[in-house]
Write a protein that binds this DNA or RNA. Structure first.
Lengths: 353, 353
DNA sequence: CAGCATTTGTCAACCGGTTGCCAAAACTTG
DNA sequence: CAAGTTTTGGCAACCGGTTGACAAATGCTG
C-alpha cells in the first residue's frame, strides 16, 4: 500500500470528467489527507502554517505530498485568502530598453521571494495604463508602475486598494523609487566644465514627463554651480529619430556640449551631427542619460549619466514585497544614485576647425 | 433605491472582516442577483453564456452589474473551470535584446485577445527553465517557450499537459515558430559574393543551440551555391565580449567576410577589429544576425540578417490562443521569413591596404 | 383549449484550498 | 494520580464563481 504507485489519485477508468488533463490529475490536499490518514484541514495547516501540527504528522503529510507530487492550486488558495503571490508591473513601452532592466530587476527580485511577475504595457497612453492597472488589481497582490503616465490622483486611488510602488516619479503618499539625478549630472557637468566647455544645451524629453523636468532642473543647478550657461532645447519625441530632428536646433544654440534627456536622443543626435560632418567629441561633446543597452555600441561610445534601472526595478519589487509581507514603511521615497559613465563622446573643447 | 449609491454592497460598519479592502469590497454575482431579483446562477449565465437567458433578464442583470461596478473574480472563475485567461512566456535571458521583441509581440497579441502575459526567465539554465515551466503550468492556460534549453522530451511532457508553443527551435509533435534562415542568409551571401568576396567565416553560437546549427547549415548551403568557401569559427559565448575574443581567430582564417551567429558577436567583433586598425567594410565585411535593437547604433551601422522576432512572438501567441480556443491545428511548424538588412558594415572587397 | 415542445430560471453540488471553533489527546504539576 | 494547561486534529463554513438536472413558464400546434 505504501509503494508509490504511479497511477496516483486518478485511477478511475472513466477518462477525466471535468479537468481535461488526459494524464494524471493534480493531487489535492484531500488526496494527501486520505493517503496520510488525516483530515484535509490538517494537511492544509501542515503545508502552510509552520509548527501548527506535530512533527510526526508533519512528516507523514510531507511524505504523502511528495509521493503524490502535490502542488498547491494557486486559485483555490487565492479564493479564500485574497493572496495570489503575484505582482504586476506596468511599463509605458515594452520595446523601450529603459524598461528592460527595470523588468529584469523586478522579475529577479520577485522570483527570489517566490512571487510571479505579471507584465502589462500601456503603449504610452494614460488611459490604457489605467485600464491595465484596474484589470490587474483584481489579480495581483500589488503593483509597480514604471514611469506612469496617469494622474497622481489615479495612482493614489489605486494605492488605496492595494500596495503600489512607483518608479521614476514622485507621488505623494505613495512609495516611490527614483534615481537622484543630482550626483550624476553634477559629475557630468563638472567633467564638461573641466574640459573647457562654457555652454551646455539640454535636450528635453516629453513635456509631461516628471523625470525630464527633474533632469532639466538638475542640469540648470549643476551648470550654475560650475559657471556654465545652460540652454534648453525641446525634442519632438524621446527616440533616436527625435534626436536626429533636434540636431539643427542644438547647433543653433552654439553650445559645445549637449546633455540629453535620454540615450536614444543622444544617439540620434550624434548620428545626425556626424552625418553633417561634425566630429564628436572634438567639435561637440554629447552626454546621454540612462546608459541603456547599446549605449556603448556607438562610435565613439556614448558618455552618459547612468540611471541604475535594474536597481530601480529590484528596489521597487523589494519595497512592494516588504509591504505585502507586513514589514517596511507604508510610504516614502527610495532614492538611488546616478553616476557619470565617461566614454568617448565627450571631451575637451577644441578651437573651431 | 435606484441611484448608484457609492457606498455599494459593503456598507456594514465593522471594518472589513476578511477582505482587508478598506474601501468598497468588490461586488459579486450574489450582489447582482439580489439587486436584479434573480438567482446567482442566472447572473453567471447572463454574464458568460451568450443568449442563455432572455433579453429582458439580460438587460436587467447587465444594468445591475454596471451599477455595482462588477468585475469577475478571476480566481473564483478559474477554480471550477480551470481556465485562467493567462499564458506564460519563458525566455532564457530577459536582458538579451533578442527576446525584447518576442516578449512584446506575445504581449500585444495576448492583450488584444484578452489574455494576460506571465513572464519568467530561465537564466540560461535548463533546470531553472523546467522548474519555472512546471510552476507556471498550474497557473496558466498555455505556455510559450522562447529558445528553450531543456530537452525535447521535457518539452513534450509539458505539452501533454497543456498547449505549448516553442519559438526558435523545432520539437516534434509540438507546434513551433521558427525563422527560416535560408532566404536571409542566401541574400547575405549573394550580396557578399556580388561584392567580390571569396571566403566567408561563420562565427558559431553555443554548441547546444539548435538555431546556431541551422544558421551554420544555411551559411554552408548558400556559400556552396554562390561558390564561396565557408569556414567555421567557434565562439566562447554569444555576446559582445565573445565577439571581441573571437577576432583573432577570424583574422586567422583569412576570410574577407564574416557572418556571425548573432548581432552581439558581430558588434564585439567589429569593435575589436576597428580597435586593431582595420577598416570595416573596406578591409573586412561583417554581417550579423537578428537585427536587434541597437544594431544600427554602430559605425558603420551593422548589416544583418533580420529575424522577425516580434512576428515570432506574435505568431506563437496567436498559435497558442487558437489552440486554447479550439481552432487551429494541434501541431506543425510556422515558418517566418528572414531577410537581409543591408547597412554599412558590409561591402566591396578592396585589395589589401 | 388541451397537449406537447421549447425556453428560461432555480436548486444544489462542486472546484480546492483556509480558518475559527471546539473537543480529544498529551503533557504538566502539585 | 487527579486537575489544569497546552497541543493537536477534526468539523464545517466559506471564498465566488460554474454547470448539470430539473421544474416552471412560455410558445406553438391541432
Amino acid at each position: 500500500m505504501t509503494e508509490p504507485k504511479t497511477q496516483g489519485p486518478a485511477a478511475s477508468p472513466e477518462t477525466g470528467k471535468k479537468p481535461a488533463r488526459n494524464g494524471k490529475a493534480n493531487a489535492t490536499i484531500y488526496d494527501i489527507a486520505k493517503l496520510a490518514g488525516v483530515n484535509p484541514s490538517t494537511v492544509s495547516r501542515a503545508l502552510s502554517k509552520p509548527g501548527r501540527v506535530s512533527a510526526k504528522t508533519q512528516k507523514l503529510i510531507e511524505d504523502a505530498a511528495a509521493q503524490l507530487n502535490y502542488q498547491v492550486n494557486p486559485f483555490a488558495r487565492a479564493l479564500p485568502t485574497g493572496r495570489t503571490n503575484t505582482f504586476g508591473l506596468i511599463v509605458a513601452d515594452i520595446t523601450n530598453p529603459t524598461f528592460f532592466d527595470i523588468i529584469r530587476g523586478a522579475q529577479i527580485t520577485g522570483t527570489r521571494r517566490d512571487y510571479t511577475l505579471v507584465l502589462a504595457e500601456s503603449a504610452e497612453s494614460a488611459v490604457t495604463e489605467l485600464t491595465a492597472a484596474r484589470r490587474m488589481m483584481t489579480t495581483v497582490d500589488g503593483l509597480i508602475l514604471a514611469s506612469p503616465r496617469m494622474d497622481d490622483d489615479d495612482i493614489r486611488a489605486l494605492a488605496r486598494d492595494k500596495p503600489v510602488v512607483v518608479i521614476n516619479r514622485e507621488v505623494e503618499d505613495v512609495p516611490c523609487v527614483i534615481p537622484d539625478v543630482r550626483k550624476g549630472i553634477g559629475e557630468a557637468v563638472r567633467s564638461l566644465a573641466g574640459n573647457g566647455h562654457k555652454k551646455l544645451a539640454f535636450v528635453a524629453g516629453p513635456a509631461r514627463s516628471w523625470m525630464s523636468a527633474r533632469r532639466w532642473e538638475g542640469a540648470q543647478a549643476a551648470c550654475e554651480w560650475s559657471h556654465l550657461e545652460a540652454v534648453r532645447v525641446e525634442s519632438s519625441k524621446p527616440t533616436v529619430d527625435g534626436g536626429r530632428q533636434v540636431a539643427r536646433d542644438v547647433l543653433a544654440t552654439g553650445a559645445t556640449a549637449v546633455l540629453t534627456y535620454n540615450d536614444l536622443l543622444a544617439i540620434g543626435l550624434m548620428q545626425e551631427l556626424q552625418a553633417g560632418g561634425m566630429a564628436v567629441p572634438d567639435q561637440i561633446s554629447i552626454v546621454g542619460f540612462d546608459d541603456i543597452f547599446g549605449a556603448d555600441f556607438t562610435t565613439p561610445p556614448l558618455t552618459t549619466v547612468r540611471s541604475p534601472l535594474g536597481e530601480c526595478g529590484a528596489g521597487a519589487a523589494t519595497r512592494l514585497l516588504d509591504l505585502l509581507q507586513g514589514s517596511g514603511e507604508p510610504a516614502g521615497t527610495l532614492r538611488v544614485e546616478t553616476e557619470l559613465v565617461l566614454r568617448g563622446s565627450s571631451g575637451r573643447v577644441f578651437p573651431a576647425g
